[in-house]
Nucleic acid binder design. Sequence first.
DNA 1: AAGTTAATGTGAACTATCGCACATATATAG
DNA 2: CTATATATGTGCGATAGTTCACATTAACTT
Lengths: 229, 229
Amino acid sequence: MNKDFILRLTKYKRLLYKLKALGFERVFSNNLGDAIGVTPALVRKDFSTLSLPGNKRGGYNVDTLIEKLDKILGRDRAQHVVVVGCGRIGTALMEYSGFNTDGIEIVAGFDAHPENVHNTSGVPIYGMDKLNEYVQENDTKVAIIAVPDSEASKVLDRLIDAGIRGILNFAPVELKCTRNDCPGSTTIHNVNIALELEHLFYQVNSQEAEEEEKHATGEETGAHPDGNT
Amino acid sequence: MNKDFILRLTKYKRLLYKLKALGFERVFSNNLGDAIGVTPALVRKDFSTLSLPGNKRGGYNVDTLIEKLDKILGRDRAQHVVVVGCGRIGTALMEYSGFNTDGIEIVAGFDAHPENVHNTSGVPIYGMDKLNEYVQENDTKVAIIAVPDSEASKVLDRLIDAGIRGILNFAPVELKCTRNDCPGSTTIHNVNIALELEHLFYQVNSQEAEEEEKHATGEETGAHPDGNT
DNA sequence: AAGTTAATGTGAACTATCGCACATATATAG
DNA sequence: CTATATATGTGCGATAGTTCACATTAACTT
Ligand SMILES: NC(=O)c1ccc[n+]([C@@H]2O[C@H](COP(=O)([O-])OP(=O)(O)OC[C@H]3O[C@@H](n4cnc5c(N)ncnc54)[C@H](O)[C@@H]3O)[C@@H](O)[C@H]2O)c1
Ligand SMILES: NC(=O)c1ccc[n+]([C@@H]2O[C@H](COP(=O)([O-])OP(=O)(O)OC[C@H]3O[C@@H](n4cnc5c(N)ncnc54)[C@H](O)[C@@H]3O)[C@@H](O)[C@H]2O)c1
């Protein structure tokens, strides 16, 4: 339900796979908490709300956790994605092989001008006219939008029409489904790189200002309880 | 201070620029709230905590807001970034011109093998040996990490040594500054695309399961108060 | 100039999230 | 078989973040 909660689940799952590869059979809420940066109590509470059983003395069984988390996170089936807009970002994603390790596969690309795309990825690229057909025949549910900002909203509509229910949007516009017949189940995540950079600049700048201030006041403030990142 | 808070500020600012371009002179907390998806009360409270003054009847003055937000968010000076790792993602970012509109400029790229990079971006690309010199001479504070996962941690160390204080990391590892002499002011943001996709899959899958369940129980649940995204 | 309207500004209530602390259960040792 | 150590499971209180509700005040109207 909650964003942070699901994020933690995904982190647990990833960590557990790594631990399994290292030969771990059991883990403690302590270990997991340390690794993903939360308190052990929260780990236990998370597992508790998901009814993930632990062993009162021996911690949690890695295989059990992985199995159940995979089911909860939907990794028991293959996860297929299509990319719409095969420009710089789009092709970078299609050429990227790292998604496989997470059970994610980019199965097709779509572009308004597929003939212009220099395709070295092995992923087939189709024209936009093939979108509906492909999505429906292959029962694809998730798409990445990597078209110019001005096109993003139109593309969103087409994707929803085609039956896509989850969208990762790279265009720097806050996409929302505003149609009257918008399926309530549609989820849109916006990845706004410029926003992230701005956020960074803000923090860096304000940190700097703070330090300058500290110097200016002669370092007399030794009681600033700010040890967090 | 708070992540969501700063994110909202940035969103306000962006929206305000767009509104200004449209000829707006005043806005109401209502408008802003609708546009960025929060309640008008929160908008007012945000502005209140920043001492951004509004007009008791005529809302907020767009120019004033922009000016003050720009100052708070540090946009009164030019914002320079360097990219480390000029592969697919790295070059996509360097070739991208959209950052300019937000006052952000990618000023240089660095790569372990600059001779292999096909550079069409106009941004100069240097070897890693030039990193320290460049960052110090140009007083660069923010960098993007786009190197392979296995290199990310090493690169992080080098960046911090060079004087970088804000980092946007695209490698799918949760980078943390774990050194003993890590400057407390260093900020790291991780953009994990695979994580985002997994999150989407989770939501889509669970939505689907929910709907199936609803159908199975004969649609007798008309009282599910879930109208949010 | 007085009255009305329409927005802000904010204290208080509410809500969700998280950490604490301890009761609880189980594996191991004696 | 009993005792003990150890890690889970969870009620409760603290805290931060958000919304409510309304007093406040500036602009417009007549
Ligand atoms: N490149 C980056 O580093 C970067 C960074 C941040 C954000 N973004 C955003 O990501 C999006 C894509 O950026 P890019 O640099 O890859 O752009 P690009 O111009 O390289 O590629 C866009 C692609 O979309 C295709 N396209 C255009 N209209 C279309 C439509 N209606 N339907 C289908 N395809 C269509 C074009 O043919 C082109 O191949 C943009 O919105 C951009 O603002 C990019
Ligand atoms: N391409 C994608 O779509 C995508 C998606 C998600 C995450 N990522 C992550 O982003 C990162 C970059 O991905 P990519 O596809 O651009 O990789 P890439 O292999 O295309 O490029 C990596 C670049 O880094 C350079 N490099 C390697 N080691 C270096 C070092 N120690 N110092 C400086 N430069 C070094 C290489 O020369 C190369 O140019 C990876 O961690 C990847 O997992 C990429």
